[in-house]
Design a protein around this nucleic acid. Structure first.
Lengths: 217, 217
DNA sequence: GGGTGTGAACGGATTCACAGCA
DNA sequence: TGCTGTGAATCCGTTCACACCC
C-alpha cells in the first residue's frame, strides 16, 4: 500500500532483465548493471529492491537466482491468476499471439467474442467462447484477470459483466475510462492518447532543436 | 518544459471527451463534468486547462468550441507530423487498423516490413514498403513519428535506423528499453509489464478483501 | 576502494483554500 | 450561491549523503 506504483513497474522490468541475465549464465549482478539496462539510476534500483525485500552483499552485488525469487515472492501470488481476453478482433488476436507462450506464469487461457463464427475453435492456441459462456468459464477456470479489446461503445457493458463474474483485475485497451467496483483494479492502455503524447513531446524536441540552431547563428 | 507529463496525458483525454460532447451538441461544460468522465478531480481539470492556456467564465463553465481550439493549439503543432509503422506482423496490422481513419490528425501513412511478401501492397489502406526504402520514404513524406512493432531482438537496430532517418518521436511496443539520441522522444508501451502490474494490483485488492472479510467475522 | 542500505533532503505534482466574478 | 483561477500547503517519489560491510 505504501509501495509506489512506479516501483512495481520497475520491478517487472528488473525481473525481465534478470531472467535474461540468468539465461546468459550470469550469477551475480550489481545494481548499476541492472540500472543501465532499464535506463534508471542505481540508487533507484537499490531502493526498489529494498522495498521488494531483496538484499545483496556490500561490494558483492546481488545473486541473480535469489533476487529473482525475492522479486517473484513480492510480485506474484501463490498461484497464477488465469487471464481471459474479451474481443477477438484484430487487436485481440494480436494480443493472443503476443502473450501466447511468453511465460508459464500469466498466459491467456480463454477468449470471448460476440462473433459466433470465431467461437468454438482455437485462436493462437486459445479456446474462444461466446459471450454467454463468460460467467461460467471464468468461474470454472478460476480466471482472475481480464483483457478488454472491444470497441469503445461495448467496453463498459463488457466490463460490468466481467466484474460481476468475479474478475479482480482489468487491462483495458478501449479508449474509454471504465467505472469499476473499488475491489477491481483497472489499468488503461490508451493507444490514441499515447500516440498523441509522443507527437507532443516530439514537437517539443523539435522546437528545442530549432532554438538551439538559432542560438548557434 | 515545466508542463507535467501527466497534464499532457490528461489534456489528450479531455480533448477526446470534448469532441464527444461537441458531437452531442453540448456547447458549454463545467470542469466537474469533464472530471467525472476522465475520473479525476475538478481541481485537476482546471489546473490542467490553466496550464494549457484555456480559460472559462466563473459560474459559466467553459465553451466547448474554444476549449477544443485552445487545447489543440497547445498540443498540436502547425502541421501534422506523419506517422510510420515498422513491423507489419499481427500487432503491427492490428495497430494499422486501429489507427486508420481515427483522426484526420495523426494517421499512419507508411508501413515497413522485413517480409517482402507484405511489401508493395496496401494493408488497412496503408502502403507497405521494404526496410530498404525506409530512409527515402520518411524523407520524402516528411514523417516525424515512428511506431515500433517488431520483435525485441530487432528493435534497437530498427530504432537506430529510424533515428538516423530524422524521426523525432517513437512509440515502442517491443519489450526492451531503447537507446535513442537526446533529440528523440521515446515512449514505451510494455504490454508484458502492464499485464504483470495488473496481476500485482489485482492480488492486492484480493488480499484487502480477504482481510476485510476476516475483520467482519 | 567500491557497493549496498537507508535516513534525510529535494523537487514535482496533487490537493487545499480562498479570492474574484457572474 | 456556485464556479473559475491561482497562490500555498501537502503529499509522494526521486535523489543525495553517508554509515556500514566486503
Amino acid at each position: 500500500v505504501s509501495v509506489p506504483e512506479k516501483t512495481v513497474e520497475r520491478l517487472c522490468l528488473y525481473r525481465r532483465v534478470l531472467h535474461q541475465l540468468r539465461t546468459e549464465g550470469v550469477e551475480v549482478v550489481f545494481s548499476r548493471a541492472i540500472a543501465d539496462r532499464v535506463h534508471v539510476r542505481s540508487h533507484q534500483v537499490r531502493r526498489d529492491l529494498m522495498i521488494a525485500g531483496a538484499s545483496g552483499v556490500p561490494n558483492g552485488g546481488y545473486a541473480v537466482r535469489t533476487l529473482l525469487e525475492d522479486i517473484a515472492s513480492f510480485l506474484d501470488g501463490p498461484r497464477s491468476p488465469g487471464v481471459c481476453l474479451v474481443g477477438a478482433g484484430r487487436l485481440g488476436q494480436a494480443l493472443l499471439s503476443y502473450f501466447s507462450g511468453r511465460w508459464r506464469w500469466l498466459g491467456i487461457t480463454a477468449a470471448f467474442d460476440r462473433d459466433a463464427s470465431k467461437c468454438g475453435r482455437h485462436i493462437s492456441g486459445c479456446p474462444c467462447y461466446t459471450m454467454d459462456e463468460m460467467a461460467a468459464v471464468i468461474g470454472e477456470r478460476g480466471i482472475g484477470l481480464g483483457i478488454l479489446a472491444v470497441p469503445a461503445e461495448e467496453a463498459q457493458a463488457v466490463c460490468d459483466e466481467l466484474c460481476a463474474s468475479g474478475i479482480r483485475g482489468l487491462l483495458n485497451f478501449a479508449p474509454v475510462r471504465l467505472r469499476v467496483p473499488s475491489a477491481v483494479y483497472c489499468e488503461d492502455v490508451d493507444l490514441t492518447m499515447v500516440l498523441e503524447k509522443v507527437a507532443y513531446y516530439a514537437r517539443c524536441e523539435e522546437e528545442v532543436e530549432e532554438t538551439r540552431g538559432k542560438a548557434e547563428v
